[in-house]
């Protein structure tokens, strides 16, 4: 029941997470920052703008991104296979990529290509993480993970660290905000969306927050307090990282993911399988 409510209200919850994040970021930069409700103000403003679309397919792909993102979250929360949730997330990002590369703007096309680089970097790791959950818990089902009596974080410390360092890639945060890169390609894939269509992307991002932090929560197993601590830790950590790093090149991101993060997670999985 709680997961149904969580799924339905995921955009709203994600909006609040984003609002908190904007305040935290502003305070870290010694600013006041916007009010907590700011993302919703943005949301309602965008709804009232005149809809301008490049072509209908482009707009459709923007909405597809939002729907697939929500669907991935629903699959994740409503107790289906974790692996399927990961694949639905891939579909969501692919919709974004296809939409972005269907227009002529070079920023949009560059952003789409960079978004693919993001996928190459983090998707193998997501799959590895799900597999490691299977090895620990013995099931792909979220319910079993949440009822697992041990502490997955103790079995999977390296996977957790690798996942922590992947969050900046998933949520477009500073060392790896390559696809969004506001000062380079002005938002990348989202540049050509406007008004209500941009809204779909904007809220899709909020859902992604919930999607990502759910995974962080799973590392607590049945100990929900541990999960909550891990989520708060992950939230603060990525904000700190966001505020203390410069943006790196996409080549460096892919290298980092494949040379450091994936071997690290794989090592954890191998050790787990041996023991």
């Amino acid at each position: 029941m709680i997961s149904v409510i969580l799924t339905i209200f995921a955009p709203i919850l994600g909006g609040f997470v984003y609002g908190i994040e904007r305040i935290v970021r502003a305070r870290m930069q010694s600013r006041m920052g916007p009010p907590l409700m700011q993302p919703f103000y943005d949301f309602f403003k965008l709804m009232d703008k005149r809809p301008i679309m490049i072509h209908s397919f482009h707009a459709l792909m923007g909405i597809m991104y939002f729907i697939a993102e929500w669907f991935a979250l629903a699959v994740l929360l409503l107790g289906n296979d974790l692996l399927i949730a990961v694949f639905f997330h891939v579909i969501a990002v692919l919709a974004l990529v296809i939409g972005a590369s269907s227009v002529r703007s070079s920023y949009s096309v560059l952003g789409a290509l960079r978004e693919l680089m993001h996928m190459i970097s983090y998707e193998p790791l997501m799959v590895l993480m799900v597999v490691s959950f299977y090895l620990v818990v013995g099931s792909f089902d979220i319910k079993d993970v949440l009822h697992y009596n041990g502490y997955p974080i103790l079995d999977l410390p390296l996977v957790f660290i690798a996942f922590l360092l992947t969050i900046p890639m998933l949520l477009q945060k500073s060392p790896f905000d390559v696809a969004e890169a506001h000062q380079e390609i002005i938002g990348g894939p989202e540049i050509e969306y406007s008004g209500p269509f941009y809204e779909a992307l904007y809220t899709g991002k909020w859902i992604e927050y919930i999607y990502v932090f759910t995974f962080a929560f799973l590392f607590g197993g049945s100990h929900y307090w541990l999960g909550a601590i891990l989520v708060i830790f992950a939230f603060l950590f990525i904000n700190l990282l966001d505020n203390s790093t410069a943006r790196l090149d996409f080549r460096r991101m892919v290298k980092f993911a494949w040379i450091v993060l994936i071997p690290m997670a794989a090592l954890n999985v191998i050790l787990l399988a041996l023991i």
Binding site: R22, Q29, G33, Y41, S194
Partner: peptide, 22 residues
Amino acid sequence: LAPKYDIERFGALNRGNPKQAD
């Protein structure tokens, strides 16, 4: 945009993109 005046208090952002600007 910087800390002393901080226009983000009012929700204003420098988007740099005509399609999303007001």
